[in-house]
């Protein structure tokens, strides 16, 4: 049974329909990516899951129907790293991490998870008192991942992690993501405009076109797909 199942999910912004019925699923311990052009509905798909846009259609998480308010979704074990990374720029790195753990019920796990996060991002520990807004773009993206990890999510939604970052840093982000999945049994749904990067790091992918799933399959299948290659991979 997949961890997350979307069936015919629709969403609109005022008069504009952004999702025309998206069906996709994410299995345990997998990285699944969502590809597509600007305006295809990638970000909206994540927002429909986390409840930051009103949606219709069914979303099941761990076999149960997913609640619709962002607070409840966060509490049920889904962490969303949104566009712009959701950094609390005025707060310190440490406070950002504490907010990451806000939705957790077990407070004892905080120190343990902090240690686990610091293992992957050692610099976080030295700069816990620094104001988060003064971090570089790459550091803020790492902090966003770390903040999401602190809630011990079953599923993490990541919106365009590669945006504006150097290839080396992007690779490092995906490596950490993979390592955390292996260590803690998590899944990830990643939205990416950079299809090359996304297919390199995920098991499966969906290509959205105008609010619908146009193509889906394993990363290898999509790399071999003529149309996908021409439109999104550029070779």
């Amino acid at each position: 049974m997949p961890l997350l199942e979307l069936e015919d999910v629709q969403a609109r912004y005022g008069a504009v329909q952004a999702l025309h019925g998206v069906t996709l699923d994410v299995d345990e311990r997998q990285v699944v990516s969502v590809l597509g052009a600007n305006g295809a509905g990638k970000t909206t798909t994540l927002r429909a899951i986390s409840g930051t846009v009103r949606r219709s259609g069914s979303i099941r998480f761990d076999g149960k129907s997913l609640p619709r308010s962002p607070e409840a979704v966060a509490r049920s074990g889904i962490a969303h790293v949104p566009e712009g990374r959701g950094t609390f720029a005025e707060l310190s790195v440490d406070e950002n991490l504490r907010l990451g753990a806000y939705s957790r019920r077990d407070r004892s796990g905080y120190e343990r998870d902090l240690a686990a996060v610091v293992k992957h991002f050692p610099w976080l520990d030295e700069r816990r008192d620094q104001q988060a807004g003064t971090l570089s773009g790459g550091e803020q993206q790492m902090l966003a991942l770390a903040r999401a990890f602190m809630s011990r999510p079953r599923l993490i939604l990541v919106d365009e992690p590669s945006l504006g970052l150097a290839p080396l840093i992007v690779r490092r982000l995906f490596d950490v993501l993979r390592a955390w999945i292996d260590e803690h049994g998590m899944s990830a749904l990643v939205v990416e405009q950079n299809a090359n990067v996304a297919l390199q790091h995920s098991e499966r992918a969906y290509v959205l076109e105008v609010g619908r799933v146009a193509v889906s399959g394993t990363a290898d299948e999509l790399r071999g797909n003529e149309a996908v290659r021409r439109s999104y991979l550029g070779y």
Binding site: H80, L99, Y102, S103
Partner: peptide, 24 residues
């Protein structure tokens, strides 16, 4: 306090706070 942190976070970035499970 945790509550105080949530209060400050809600004021600074309500959208992101909701994603963290804070009832803004």
């Amino acid at each position: 306090t945790r509550l105080g942190l949530a209060l400050r976070a809600s004021a600074l970035n309500p959208e992101s706070s909701r994603l963290h499970g804070i009832r803004v």
